[in-house]
C-alpha cells in the first residue's frame, strides 16, 4: 500500500499542520487581544519589559529543548539558577577587595556563573549516563540539592551583591544596543544558534535520533552517552548565561530565586511543539512557547478582566491544550 501511486505527493502540501501553525496562531491571537485591550500593550516600554523578562526562561528553555528532544528531562534548572546566582554573588563580593569596583570583577563573576553551570550540568549528565539513573530521579534529586545549597549559602536569608557593584552591573540588564536590551539580544542570539544547531548540525540530528530510538542511534555509530551528557552540560551553561542576565536585575539571590522556572521552561518547550517523549524538537517553537507564556501574564497584569492571580491557571490550560493538539495530529496520521 505504500508504493501505489504518486498522487499522494500533494498531500503534505495541502494539509495544514496544526503542530506548526498552532503555536504561531496562538501567539498572534494573544498579541491582537493584548493590543485591543490596552493601548500601552504595544508600547516600546511594555514590549521591552515582556521580552527582557522572557529572556531568562527563554535561554534556559532553548537548552531544555535539546534535553527533551534527546529523550531526557531536567527538573533542576530553577534551583540551579538560584545556586549559580548565589555562588556568583559570593565570588564577586569576595573579589572586590582585590580588584575594587571594576569590570574585572563582573567578568570573573560571569566566568564563575558559566563554569558552575557547566559543572552542575555535567553532574546531572554523568549521573544519568554513567550511573544509568532516570533523568527524572537524578534531576529531582539535584533540584533539592541546589535549592538547599543556596539556602545554606544565604544562611536562610538573602545573598546580596555589594551596592556599588550593583550600580556598575545594572546596565547588563537594563541597557542595550539601539534601544534593544541586552537580555533580548542574548536571547535572540541563543535562539538563532540553537535553531541552527538543532536543524543543521549532527549534534541536533543525534539528539533527535537518541530521543526517537536509542538502540537505533547506537547501531548507527552515535555516541549515545556522550551526546546525552552534552545536552545537560549545554543546558547547565545556558542556565549560567541566564543567571548572568538575572543577577544585575535584582542584585541578590535567595532560596526563592528561580522557583518554578523548570516548569515554565518545560512548558514552553512542550507548547512549542517539541515531543515530551523525545525524538522531535523545535527551537523556534520553544521561543514562541516562551513568548506565549509571558504574554498571558502581561495581558492579565495590564487588563482587569481576569485576576492576575489566575495567571498560573490559564498557563496550565494552555499547556494541556498544546499537548491535546499534538495528540490529535498523531491520531490523524
Amino acid at each position: 500500500m505504500a508504493n501505489v501511486t504518486a498522487n499522494t505527493a500533494r498531500r503534505g502540501g495541502l494539509r495544514v499542520d496544526i503542530r506548526v501553525l498552532g503555536p504561531i496562531v496562538a501567539l498572534i491571537a494573544l498579541v491582537i487581544v493584548g493590543a485591543l485591550m490596552n493601548a500601552n500593550f504595544l508600547s516600546y516600554g511594555n514590549v521591552t519589559n515582556v521580552l527582557a523578562r522572557s529572556a531568562f526562561i527563554g535561554i534556559i528553555a532553548v537548552g531544555m529543548t535539546f534535553v527533551i528532544t534527546a529523550g531526557g528531562l531536567d527538573l533542576s534548572v530553577g534551583s540551579m539558577a538560584a545556586f549559580i546566582a548565589g555562588v556568583m554573588i559570593l565570588v564577586m563580593n569576595a573579589l572586590i577587595p582585590t580588584f575594587g569596583i571594576s569590570w574585572a570583577v563582573i567578568l570573573l563573576g560571569m566566568a564563575t556563573s558559566l563554569i558552575v553551570g557547566m559543572a552542575a550540568g555535567l553532574f546531572n549528565g554523568l549521573l544519568i549516563t554513567k550511573a544509568r539513573i532516570e533523568a527524572f530521579i537524578v534531576t529531582l534529586g539535584s533540584m533539592g540539592i541546589f535549592r538547599s545549597l543556596v539556602t545554606w549559602l544565604a544562611d536562610g536569608g538573602t545573598i546580596s551583591l555589594d551596592f556599588e557593584m550593583r550600580e556598575l552591573y545594572r546596565p547588563v540588564y537594563y541597557d542595550g544596543i539601539l534601544g534593544v536590551a541586552w537580555p533580548i539580544i542574548v536571547f535572540a542570539v541563543v535562539a538563532i544558534l540553537g535553531e541552527i544547531a538543532m536543524r543543521h548540525t549532527s549534534f541536533g540530528r543525534h539528539c533527535a535520533a537518541i530521543g526517537s530510538n536509542e538502540q537505533v542511534a547506537r547501531f548507527s555509530a552515535v555516541h549515545v552517552d556522550r551526546v546525552r551528557a552534552a545536552t545537560y552540560v549545554l543546558l547547565g551553561i545556558l542556565v549560567g548565561l541566564a543567571t548572568i542576565m538575572y543577577v544585575p536585575r535584582l542584585g541578590s539571590a535567595s532560596s526563592s530565586t528561580g522557583v518554578l522556572w523548570e516548569l515554565e521552561a518545560i512548558a514552553a518547550v512542550i507548547i512549542g511543539g517539541t515531543v515530551l517523549k523525545g525524538g522531535f524538537g523545535r527551537v523556534w517553537g520553544t521561543v514562541v512557547g516562551v513568548l506565549i507564556l509571558s504574554l498571558i501574564g502581561n495581558i492579565l497584569n495590564l487588563t482587569d478582566l481576569v485576576s492576575p492571580y489566575l495567571n498560573g491557571a490559564i498557563q496550565g490550560v494552555i499547556i494541556i491544550l498544546a499537548v491535546v493538539l499534538q495528540r490529535q495530529k498523531k491520531a490523524d496520521r
Binding site: 543543521h200 540530528r205 533527535a208 526517537s212 538502540q215 525524538g279
Partner: peptide
C-alpha cells in the same frame, strides 16, 4: 528496533550512520 527511526523521514534515516560525510560544522 535497531535499524531505522520509524518516526523520522527517509533522509534523516539514510544519512544517520554516514553523517560525518555530510557534515562540515553544519549538515
Amino acid at each position: 528496533e535497531r535499524g531505522l527511526l520509524l518516526n523520522q523521514s527517509m533522509r534523516q534515516n539514510l544519512t544517520l550512520l554516514a553523517l560525518p560525510k555530510f557534515t562540515n560544522v553544519l549538515i
